[in-house]
Design a protein around this nucleic acid. Structure first.
Lengths: 257, 257
DNA sequence: GACAGACTTGCGTGAAACGCGCAGTATTGT
DNA sequence: ACAATACTGCGCGTTTCACGCAAGTCTGTC
């Protein structure tokens, strides 16, 4: 197999896994020029294996929709790595609670095909990622729908949650600080997150490094220690120290996982 | 509905039908500049309704909503008429419960822009139809997700429902008979429908005429009379008489209403 | 081992498509 | 009637693209 063929196969595999791929990323990953990647994509496009987009390509097959949303945030690779680390925490037979957001969505994607797993979530993207995985039971919380985050919030969600507990809870965040916890745009969102955190034995917050120490909004969800921050190795060591000092367990996931 | 919204709906419909659409074609068809089309596509892309390609857009969700969209194709006009009649029943200030399925989905669409309305539903398509209507509060029941019907079912949905009542309940059906009620493929579905029917003052079953008297499956939801059957004027009079004899109110909607 | 032919790659060029901001117009809500 | 919002067209600079050319690589044969 020539290097070119191998690369095309790999591109196809990557695109099918992640849902989409960019010319830029691919050219860096394989250390070839964008021209070459474009020629590869054109070829794969002719073969009907993937669709061409502006600046990249899109898988046609199984899961275009949800994975597409993951890419909307920028730290795609980091989120993928964080998600994969988190997926290794989950053991068969467990009941877990998955929050919304693209990072947790990536985790849901990684959990496809897992066996004997109960997943509960207030997030539509999680539901759709896992809806057709036979070994995974998915229950969705109801409630008022927030279209910006594609999640359910409010009394209905909270009431449902109060009758459930979980082995592990995975939370997303718009931003997170050591002092104040998770930052969101909306109080209904933070309220639900606090409640979610109280319903689990182990609580993980999945946040790529650019979210650390940011304060873009003014609604906060405080989390009772101990909990675990999962982030990537682009994080500022000083920031991480702040979290550790506050009693938070920190897991740093190396890139290229 | 503004021209812009109508155009975007149409673009979405076109793309979903044809599979893809080009900026050039769309701009000619609607007689607007390419910029406008690009903005439309960007918006639809954000909403996750289609994927952007170089020079156009590509329909996605071949899997997730394909079954639903196929059924939308069937008896489309009739469903539209039935939905519009049903929408006139709904008064401001009411709380209503909307089931899943394409006919009730069409009703949800007709309710866009209504004022001071509380809608509860176990169906994803209803949620998404009404998510951005300011005057409509949408609450979704949680539960186990059935991807074929895009609805939530099971104990969680039932438990939530038991703490609510409604002015009007609008049910869909795979088929409906005067003797046995609503026919569905799945017992979890019929169970939920029975419960839904019990929570409302007025119960309507929206079913186009080809569903009347059919028995494609063997799970049945019995409904306590009185309830109202809403169908189109393609219905066999003998069938309608059977319903009336059983104590069911029958509303026949004339085509092109 | 040398050679020819097919394939692949990087680079440069011009064209196409893109996003963005601005200003004018239409629509909506009060 | 008025203000706020949404929409549209246009112009701008930028990004991505397709294509051609020359250099480099791989493959099979003599």
């Amino acid at each position: 197999m020539t290097a070119a063929k191998a690369r095309r196969d790999e591109i196809y595999r990557l695109a099918a896994t992640a849902g989409l791929a960019s010319v830029e990323e691919l050219s860096q990953r394989f250390d070839v020029t964008a021209s070459t990647i474009r020629r590869d994509l054109a070829l794969l496009h002719e073969q009907g294996k993937l669709a061409r987009t502006y600046g990249g390509a899109l898988a046609i097959g199984a899961h275009p929709e949800a994975s597409l949303r993951q890419r909307i945030g920028q730290a795609f690779e980091e989120k993928q790595d964080i998600a994969q680390w988190a997926a290794t925490r989950v053991k068969p037979g467990e009941s877990i609670l998955l929050d919304g957001g693209s990072t947790v969505g990536a985790l849901a994607h990684s959990l496809q095909g897992h066996d004997d797993l109960s997943v509960t979530t207030p997030a539509l993207n999680v539901v759709q990622e896992l809806a057709d995985s036979p070994g995974v039971r998915v229950d969705c919380l109801g409630g008022r729908f927030r279209s910006v985050s594609q999640t359910f919030v409010g009394p209905l969600a909270e009431a449902t949650l109060e009758r459930m507990t979980f082995d592990r809870v995975f939370l997303g965040a718009d931003a997170v600080t050591a002092d104040d916890g998770i930052c969101e745009a909306d109080h209904s969102q933070t309220r639900l997150k606090e409640l979610m955190a109280r319903r689990g034995l182990h609580v993980y917050v999945l946040a790529d490094s650019r979210k650390l120490g940011q304060r873009p909004f003014h609604a906060w969800a405080r989390l009772p220690v101990p909990w675990t921050l999962v982030t990537d190795d682009g994080a500022d060591p000083h920031q991480l120290a702040l979290f550790q000092y506050a009693g938070v367990a920190v897991a740093v996931v190396a890139a290229r996982g």
